[in-house]
Design a protein around this nucleic acid. Structure first.
Lengths: 229, 229
DNA sequence: CATACAGTACGAAACGCACCGTTTCGCCAA
DNA sequence: TTGGCGAAACGGTGCGTTTCGTACTGTATG
């Protein structure tokens, strides 16, 4: 507009970032896409925490980012894909570095899931996002790209434990992950607040020891009431 | 329209139905609401299975039901409330009649949850519905009315078992319900198909015996692949 | 080395369409 | 008389697409 952006050295500064993106159409298709790309992701993240997923709008993002609506449509097929890209940049989540202590590692995994679920505004975005992805399978791949790495790393961890005899040999490690993931997502959605440390302990206890005691200790404000209430 | 419904005896026939509804404005407020009410619920259910929750629209329902849009807005505050009412009529679900066999009863409970989840078209409606309810707490009450009775009856069942020593005395029975509910909802959403009998067995096995074996037997086409895939 | 020429992403703006949620207006039955 | 009803229209918002002129790019050319 009034402050025309400089154009020297842009190319080299942005190149690596483009390479890290889940190419929607092409890695850095043809030419540059300059800072519009960042502005869109930035606006998406901001608006996501301001108005939530449902009220998030391409038009709103375009306005906020100071970008043409057409530009957004050019690079992202739909809202879900855009949000997933924004989210995956937001939650760095290195692969779990195992301590060898199965219980501690699993606890970490559960915490990471909780962190992912609560990464954004209220924890309500995941059901909405999930619903969108389900409806339009176009985004399924991107969604998988977001959760699958985490999933896989935990399954690997559990599989190793199983093969080493630290878990019963016939354990369904894959379902283990689904159980704590599903529970975490469900509790977060229904209680409108992600589960706390107590639930982490309870889930791990159930999965590893088959024991599901009520949360002992000071009860950190989670699970006071059940979903329906 | 061309086949005007009879109206004799309607009042008495419908009265109990109204009483069972989560009065949005009033049970059978002031005057009658006649068959428009049924037509709307009918159209809602039909369209729900045809186009799913997201593409379900007040205008579409009005068209299909041969009813004025204003009439729908008069009686239901939003889409979620309407869908919840339509759903709760659809899944009769008597309270579980206990057999005394805890394992069998819990198995039944899990199956009922699966049935609820798959009651409608593809199993995708629950995340979308959940997201809507979360966003607009207006419908929270109605939603609770849909799931809470089931939840409560299972908790009661589990509590009885716990007090009778058939479960460890410190068991968190409430979380037990959340765990299988969450897992079922999550698997259904992510796999795009409700879990099958194998998962029922696995969940019950985990919750009651602390044992989570891979599904034995012919493996009825569920859980072949994991969510992310 | 400088200049001209595609090629193409970009912003702005507008398009028709669908649905939103509300309001107005007769009509008709209680 | 009252009030729910269907029909129809309201302004508003977002969709997804298209058109346009501009700005910048990499490459070809003098």
């Amino acid at each position: 507009m009034d402050t025309p952006r400089r154009q020297d050295g842009r190319q080299s500064a942005l190149a690596p970032e483009y390479a890290a993106q889940p190419d929607h159409i092409a890695p850095d298709s043809r030419r540059r896409r300059r800072e519009s790309h960042e502005a869109v992701l930035r606006a998406t993240k901001d608006l996501l925490s301001e108005v939530g997923y449902q009220r998030l709008t391409f038009e709103g993002i375009a306005r906020r980012a100071g970008v043409s609506k057409a530009t957004i449509y050019r690079w992202w097929p739909n809202k879900a894909a855009l949000v997933i890209e924004a989210l995956s940049g937001e939650v760095p989540l290195p692969p779990i570095h195992e301590t060898g202590d199965l219980e501690a590692d699993l606890r970490t995994a559960v915490r990471l899931t909780i962190e992912l679920v609560s990464a954004m505004p209220t924890c309500l975005i995941l059901p909405a996002l999930l619903a969108d992805v389900i409806e339009d399978p176009t985004g399924t791949g991107a969604f998988a790209e977001l959760i699958e790495p985490r999933r896989a790393s935990v399954v690997k961890l559990l599989e190793r434990a199983r093969l080493e005899g630290r878990l019963p040999p016939d354990t369904d490690t894959s379902l283990m992950v689904d159980i704590y993931s599903g529970t975490v997502v469900y509790l977060a959605a229904v209680n409108r607040i992600p589960p706390g440390e107590a639930v982490v302990g309870q889930l791990v206890s159930l999965l590893l020891h088959g024991h599901l005691p009520v949360s002992k200790g000071p009860a950190p404000a989670d699970r006071e009431e059940s979903p329906g209430a």
